[in-house]
Write a protein that binds this DNA or RNA. Sequence first.
DNA 1: CCTTTGCACCCATTACATCA
DNA 2: GTGATGTAATGGGTGCAAAG
Length: 209
Amino acid sequence: MKTRVIEPEDQMALIPQMYPGLYTPIAPQQGESKRRRRRKKNKGGESSLSGAKKRKLSQEQVNLLELNFGNEHKLESERKDRLASELGLDPRQVAVWFQNRRARWKNKKLEEEYSKLKSVHEGVVLEKCRLESEVLKLKEQLCEAEKETQRQAERGDGVSSNSPSSSLSMEAIDPPFLGELGADQGYEDVFYISENSYILGLEWMNLYM
DNA sequence: CCTTTGCACCCATTACATCA
DNA sequence: GTGATGTAATGGGTGCAAAG
């Protein structure tokens, strides 16, 4: 019979395949819920595992199983049989232990991934706030600059009042305005948006304002 | 080509043990 | 005694490869 052997380095790459539900959660549809048949209580009855009511594994058994799991999460039948005889367990028990252990491992990974994503998200939200206040500050600076230009034009001190730039408004500002406004804090890279995508960029920002 | 068969696996769930 | 939690075990479903 065949045994599926999966190299350790392939394991992470195979996770979506190994755990399809993890990446494509299947939500049971209303009404057509594929409920599984309930198992009847087996009070002292026969067990499929040789009838013995042997449950908790000893610490020693668990240690060896953990050791093996650490080396390789999958279990080829040869290794399963060897482990089983080493531990004095049914091979089926070893397989079940590995199955449950993989499930626990997967849950742990999910939790880790969740908290990682959560902290990344928190960082992004923080950065968004910072950028928003930066935008406000720059808008105020722009306003002041416009007022100053206006004042100078009214005094008639050499600046042509017909200059297109004198009618500069908040809406019509040239895209790469940050560099012009003394944004020497190094935000240019963060903020630079090409002319073509400028409007889209603003719309995107408005989504979060 | 198919269909069937056997196996390993995942998943959801149950059953039971242990502990606060 | 009891509810919460952890884990061993079960049953159904699926994919895959070999055999018929």
